[in-house]
Amino acid sequence: MYKHIMVPVDLAHADRLDRALTTAADLAKHYGIPLTYVGVTATTPGAVAHNPEEFQAKLDRFAQAQGLKHGLRPDMVAYTSHDPAVDLDQTLMKAIDETQADLVVMASHVPGLADHLFASNAGHLAMHAKISVFVVR
């Protein structure tokens, strides 16, 4: 059915991702396919990490913890972006290409009025990615 699942994660709000993470892990186990967590950071110090290396280390720890929790051996890739507030969508599109994933599972908020002006990241991917996107709300 699918070959590779990609899960974009926002480490600053990892607590809100539970449903999406469980969904992704269940799908990975169901089809017996690899799962990759993708994180995007700015090069400037931010809430999650002070520099890209620290971010990568945190994402790695996150992936390992998720692996233990769900009995999987997930992968992870950290990307840096000059302006993540705007470039996140393009960075995730690039990640889809580079990880060669064919299914994205990601969390999103319930759409509201603001989404007409500034589309959510999941909304953008669902609209522009060529592969399947599972938006978990």
Binding site: A12, G46, A47, H50, N51, E53, L113, A114
Partner: peptide, 29 residues
Amino acid sequence: KDGPDGLTNPIETDYEIGRDNIQARVGPF
């Protein structure tokens, strides 16, 4: 700290970036 970008000598502080931030909603934003 040794990493892919090499060595730096960071300042150790307990301050977390964004600690004093508030996440507010103004209308839909």
